[in-house]
Amino acid sequence: MSQPGREEVIEPWQDSAAYRPPVPRDGPAIATARPPRKRARWITAGIALTLAAAAGAAYVVTGPHSFASLGAQQEAYRHHWPTPHRGGTERLAPAVTAAPDNGYTATRTEGGVPVGYDPCDAIHYVIREENAPAGGDKMIEDAVAKTARATGLVFIYDGTTEEPPSADREKYQPGRYGDRWAPVLISWTTPDEMPSFIGDAAGFGGSSPVQSGQAPWVYVTGQVQMDGPAAGKLIDQGSSAEVEAILLHEMGHVVGLGHAEDKNNLMYRSTDGTVADFGPGDLAGLAKLGNGPCVPEY
């Protein structure tokens, strides 16, 4: 079992997992409607990443999406940051206490401390509704609310957007969102739009960190990408709970959780579909991630 704060990846936009829905009890797997899965390789920032499904796994591990060297990105784009708003020094919501449990990992750590969002600043998010299945907005609302309760972080819905998902999304988009970090983008997409969704992959999630001077590293924005057609098929088959689990798993990645090594946790890297909510290790990790330092420098 992993230790708290163990680093899983250290990339600027990390997703770590895609969800493969379990085989429906009364029908074939969704994958049968798509071409046979092939090994896929991405060359990003000089790193070759391989996607291969593990036999019987329900989460397909893709490894980090390394879209730019973190150091190079920091230096090249430091001037392209929003004007520091000098945020608050007090939490917006009470800290969450969870029972101790070592069954979680953090996506990124610095000096042994998990990187998370600033609890003294709200996390804004927007939804790209194109390709959304029936009830998709309510599912997102519920997943965000559960994540907020488990972390003690405050989320604010800024409405819908036409911004498409992107592997190299800019953290600062003043023309679209004004002089602030871009809100977390939650989008329903398709395999045609996002080639990462091959085979049975149905969801990705992660966040982008920044660091200035001696201030702590902190996440400032992120993404959740959901395969809308695959989600719609699951819902039509009466498996809405599976879509909700996918969303919740990806929201865990957004706030900084990596994969757990305990099968009783939703963040475990493979599942048979029986775990639909955050488990003990997940809750311990989420409480830890939500109890980070205030970072008014950003």
Rank of each mutant, 00 (worst) to 15 (best):
M1R: 12
G5F: 07
I10E: 06
D15V: 10
S16I: 04
Y19E: 13
R20M: 11
V23L: 07
D26H: 04
A29F: 03
I30K: 00
R34W: 10
P35Q: 06
P35N: 07
R41C: 02
I43A: 12
A48E: 09
A52T: 04
V60M: 06
S66T: 13
A68Q: 08
R78G: 01
H80Q: 09
W81G: 05
R86W: 08
R91A: 12
A95Y: 14
T105P: 00
T109K: 06
G112F: 14
V113H: 03
Y117R: 02
C120M: 04
D121E: 08
G136Y: 13
K138P: 01
I140N: 03
D142Q: 11
L153D: 00
V154D: 03
Y157S: 04
P165M: 04
D168L: 11
P174Q: 13
R176V: 09
Y177N: 04
R180P: 10
S187Y: 12
E193T: 02
G213A: 10
G228Q: 09
G232D: 07
K233F: 13
S240H: 06
A241R: 12
E242A: 13
L248E: 14
H249F: 12
S270A: 07
G273D: 15
G273N: 09
P280W: 14
G281R: 14
L286A: 11
A287N: 12
N291D: 14
G292M: 12
Y298M: 12
